[in-house]
């Protein structure tokens, strides 16, 4: 019957609308459900996941020594040309010429955090740090040198 259907339509429609309003009304009154993270304010407590890939860093120990042999496996593994390794030759204790890194250039602006260089590294010299605050005013500041000044290779790493 037309009239019954018509009234039923209106009734069902109203009911569905009220069910929706019930949900929003619930959240309006239950402020505990709020999930906003107040980012710059919660910096002190904000903990990123350990594995979060934010940028590549080179591990240096307390003696300012790293394990990079300058093999450029990471440079080859990188799909974007993010890493540039400049090598130098220095004399070791026995007076033999030995390859060592001069500068480990890392272009953060090109990096896609794909983790391929970390996997490629045979000596586990580089790792990903969960640092995500990379904004700077000048793009050139994103080109970083990863080996610290005056650092040298750890003894025993080939």
């Amino acid at each position: 019957m037309f009239i019954t259907n018509y009234i039923k339509d209106i009734f069902n429609g109203m009911k569905s609308l009220l069910t929706g309003m019930k949900i929003t009304g619930y959240y309006f009154t239950h402020h505990k459900e709020i999930i906003t993270e107040q980012y710059p304010d919660n910096r002190a407590t904000l903990k990123m996941a350990d594995r979060f890939r934010g940028e590549v860093v080179m591990i240096h120990d307390e003696n300012n020594e790293h394990a990079c042999t300058g093999c450029s496996a990471c440079e080859l593994a990188c799909p974007n040309g993010t890493i540039k390794i400049i090598n130098k030759f220095e004399l070791n204790a026995e007076g033999k010429k030995k390859k060592a890194i001069d500068t480990f250039v890392y272009h953060l602006e090109l990096c896609t955090m794909c983790n391929l260089c970390i996997i490629a590294c045979p000596t586990d010299t580089i790792k990903m740090e969960p640092n995500f605050e990379h904004s700077v005013f000048d793009r050139s500041q994103l080109t970083k040198v990863l080996n610290h000044t005056g650092s040298k290779i750890k003894a025993g790493v080939e």
Binding site: I35, M48, A49, R51, F52, R53, T112, M113, N115
Partner: peptide
């Protein structure tokens, strides 16, 4: 709200939230 939970899981295991690789 639910999606964020998934991306948090991804972040923890895969190391990224969207382009996991």
């Amino acid at each position: 709200r639910e999606r964020e939970t998934i991306t948090d899981i991804m972040e923890e295991t895969c190391g990224a939230r969207l382009t996991m690789n």
